[in-house]
């Protein structure tokens, strides 16, 4: 996936689309949009930087996991097998991007009074386990795009196969000098940024 920072307007549509699509637990956002102020007065501007799990080729979360619960599919998507996770949080500490989350069932979105969304969350996720963005594998496997990509009004999230040199994301990375987040971490991310 390529994220075009120039196009992001900070509407958080991706953040909410992900929340709705995945029923993520309270306080857990797989697709946040970070804000950063750059420049000096009077030439100041605010950047919006969309983020998600970077599906690292050399994933530190996978290395840190003592149970082997984190695995990589053939297409490079890194997933958590909740049934194997024993909840050490080692992956949460190891992820350089804050993309690993730990789900502790401590009530719903509005505290102790649960709403229907909370019931769905409890059905879907196992308390005491690690959670992460799945690149919406349930959609990708049906030939659809991840919810965050589908919903972005400015098309700043571009999804495709980075192995295919003619794919839209590959061309963007080539033509606009794409960069990986925190390259010094040496994780070789599958998510790139252009600006």
């Amino acid at each position: 996936m390529v994220l075009d920072i120039d196009r992001c307007v900070g509407c958080y549509a991706c953040t909410l689309a992900c929340k709705v699509e995945n029923n993520t637990p309270p306080g857990i956002w797989y697709a946040p949009v970070f804000e950063k102020e750059v420049g000096k007065y009077p030439n100041v501007k605010r950047l919006f930087i969309p983020a998600l799990c970077n599906q690292c080729k050399d994933a530190p979360c996978m290395t840190a996991c003592p149970t082997g619960a984190i695995y990589k599919r053939e297409d490079g998507i890194v997933l958590v097998n909740e049934d194997k996770c024993c909840g050490t949080r080692a992956c949460v500490a190891a992820c350089p991007y804050g993309a690993m989350h730990f789900y502790e069932d401590e009530g719903g979105e509005y505290g102790e009074q649960l709403i229907p969304l909370d019931s769905l969350t409890r059905e879907k996720y196992t308390s005491g386990t690690a959670q992460k963005c799945t690149f919406c594998t349930h959609r990708v496997d049906q030939g659809l795009q991840p919810a965050c990509v589908e919903t972005c009004p400015t098309e700043c999230r571009i999804f495709g196969d980075l192995e295919d040199l003619d794919s839209a994301p590959s061309r963007l990375i080539r033509n606009r000098n794409g960069e990986q987040p925190r390259p010094e971490a040496g994780t070789d991310t599958s998510v790139w940024y252009v600006r």
Partner: peptide, 10 residues
Amino acid sequence: LGRPERFWRA
């Protein structure tokens, strides 16, 4: 651990 009963998996 989040799931202490699975400690052996570590």
